Simulated assay, not measured.
Amino acid sequence: MKVGFIGTGSMGSILIESLIQSGALQPEHMIASNRTFSKVELLEAKYPGFQAVQSNVQVAGDSDILFLCVKPKEFRQVAEEIKGAVCAEQIVVSITSPVQIKQLESVLKGKIAKIIPSITNYVCSGATLCIYGDRITPEDQILLERLLSNISLPIRVAEEYTRVSSDLSSCGPAFLAFFVQKFVDAAVEQTGIPREEAVRLAAEMVLGTGKLLTVGGFSPESLQKRVSVPGGITEEALHLLDVRLQGVFNELIETTHSKFFEDVDKVEAQFYAPK
């Protein structure tokens, strides 16, 4: 099985390196192209056997599973470029959330899926969101999810929930890292604790909390209750957070959705504009 990648930017390269480092794929079973060829050449140098090429059409023609890891504004151009090389039996996977499955199906013959990876996949953790078009068979879904399960937990979601699911699984690490950064900043400023020590403590806390919420059997609510003692320090601090953060996460989701639908409209204009 040959797996191809068009686009080796941030998420494309994370997918490639995670799949190799996890042992899910050998480099010689992978081929990739990128608009800036030097970026894909770096992967070829790092992983002997990995094939870097300058032609998107070559990648499309040589792949059994083809990952499209390009920006929304580039999607229609790339789809039109490779459509002659894509056959009905290929699995074509978009990792770009604003691009709709129906749009790709209108241009490409292949079996279309959309997966939304996360930076957490780089350490073989976190979720990968899986959304499938009508041409994808149950066997195709199993094949793709077996591949992704080496670096993540594949979770099927409805396309209508792509954005909010991405907020939680893909944008969430940045939001959580922001919270950790501000928590550490305050700890250093208020007490003088060495920053390196504070970061290590906070990082281990996040790791442990994730385990409690997955394999530990806790819900977010039950975990707060278990840590808090009535009238104690944690309860007092949670009350402060509840008051100060009232409505903040609603605004966060409104913000991400507003930008998402702006991108959706731009992509739609590309796909349905007169040629």
Results as ranks from 00 to 15, higher is better:
T256L: 06
I16Q: 04
G217T: 08
S97K: 02
V40N: 09
L104F: 02
V40K: 06
I16K: 03
L108A: 03
G232Q: 02
G4I: 08
E196P: 05
G9M: 09
S22L: 04
I253L: 15
L201K: 13
A79Y: 02
D140Q: 05
C69T: 07
E196I: 09
F183M: 14
N56C: 09
Q224Y: 02
I65R: 01
E204V: 03
P27H: 06
R195I: 08
S10E: 07
P48Q: 04
A273G: 09
F260S: 06
K275F: 14
S18I: 04
I112K: 00
V227N: 00
G192Y: 03
S222D: 10
R163F: 06
S106H: 09
T8Q: 07
G247H: 13
A113S: 12
F178T: 12
V3L: 04
Q270T: 05
C69K: 04
C124R: 13
A186G: 06
M205P: 05
E268L: 06
P274E: 15
L25T: 02
V188I: 05
I116W: 00
K225E: 14
V243Y: 04
Q58C: 01
Y122S: 13
P230I: 09
P98K: 01
A269V: 09
D265R: 14
R244W: 12
I119R: 00
S106V: 05
E204N: 13
D62Y: 04
I101N: 01
Q181W: 04
V78G: 08
Y272D: 02
K114D: 00
V180P: 03
K275R: 15
K71G: 01
L238D: 03
V199G: 07
Q21E: 15
V199T: 11
R76E: 04
K46N: 11
G61D: 10
T8I: 07
L108F: 02
V123Y: 10
V107D: 05
L245K: 03
P194I: 11
K111I: 01
V267K: 04
E235R: 03
P230R: 00
F183D: 01
K114F: 01
D242Y: 12
R226C: 12
L213R: 01
S97W: 00
N56Y: 02
E189I: 11
E197T: 15
G110I: 08
N250L: 13
D242E: 15
V229H: 08
S13K: 11
L25Y: 01
A52Y: 05
F37S: 13
Y47F: 15
V86S: 08
K275C: 10
L66I: 10
A32T: 11
L104T: 10
A177Y: 11
R135H: 10
V184R: 06
G232A: 03
A198K: 11
G231Y: 07
L238A: 02
I31C: 00
E17N: 08
L168S: 11
A32E: 08
I233N: 09
V53C: 08
V164L: 09
V229D: 10
F178C: 06
E105D: 12
S22V: 11
N34E: 09
K266N: 07
L207A: 15
R244H: 15
R156T: 08
E44H: 13
C171P: 06
K275W: 12
S166I: 00
